[in-house]
Amino acid sequence: MANATQQVQKLTRSRFLRLFALGCASAAVLIACASNPTGSTASDTATDTAGQPLVVGTEGTYPPFSFRDLQTNELAGYDIDVAREVANRLGRPIEFVPTQWKSMLASLDARRFDFVANQVSVTPERQQQYAFSEPYTVSGAVVIVSNDNPKQIQSVADLNGKVVGTTQGSNYAAAAEEAGAEVKYYSGIAQVLSDLQQNRVDAALNDRLYVLTELKEANYNVQAVGEPFNEEVTAFAFNQENEPLRDEVNQVLTEMKQDGTLASISEKWFGEDVSN
């Protein structure tokens, strides 16, 4: 008896739902089939025409290299200026795409950018994955500690067993691990320094140039200690399939080095020539 009623009940409810579901499913299949030809617009490789904008990935959160100028609401910085001059000389407009570092290289893999202008350090591992331009910055890493410096860190050698804050995917992590430190990852340098002030991390590693300029102006309660180490060169990073563009960029970068343009952009931001 109970079984029979249940049978009837099931039929009442599910008759509609069944028809409806079938309808939806077939509609979905139809739409999928119909939209397929228009949907798959795979990127054409190497169709660089003169008028097309150079699409450049950059963090936009890394002063003085790449940051949003709050007065003008435009991106500004050393890397931005160098990339703009490169585009200018190639006769192409430029379009910057502010991107978090963790999706920067994935974007390059997926050819969403022509190149990355964001102080990308040239390392052997990265060279296997990406094509790099001529370097346009020579720098090194430096240890940053809070002003009270409770762990008495004076140099990179003191980082053994300490907690070091760094940004996701940055190559400072490798330097910290080499020194025997435990690495904590943050989404940006501002968050690292914010935690460093509160001694939630013992030290941070960052670019000497960043420390040279921003740290002095900003009101962080932190200081740099010890000598710079791990000399680094940074360059524009390209997808390896994009070597023709890389070669074009290299040509104008070399021109810019020779005629002093690169040096004068560097003077503007750092007060010295950091380009070689």
């Binding site: 990935g57 936009g60 959160t61 890394y62 002063p63 940051f67 949003r68 100028d69 709050l70 795409v97 502010p98 991107t99 978090q100 999706s103 974007s107 969403r112 989404s187 940006g188 340098i189 501002a190 320094l193 921003e214 102006e217 900003a218 009101n219 962080y220």
Partner: peptide, 18 residues
Amino acid sequence: VTVQELTNVADQISSASA
């Protein structure tokens, strides 16, 4: 995924202004 939404803008402002 590089959309300029609220949190992204806030990140940019906080890093530009410290």
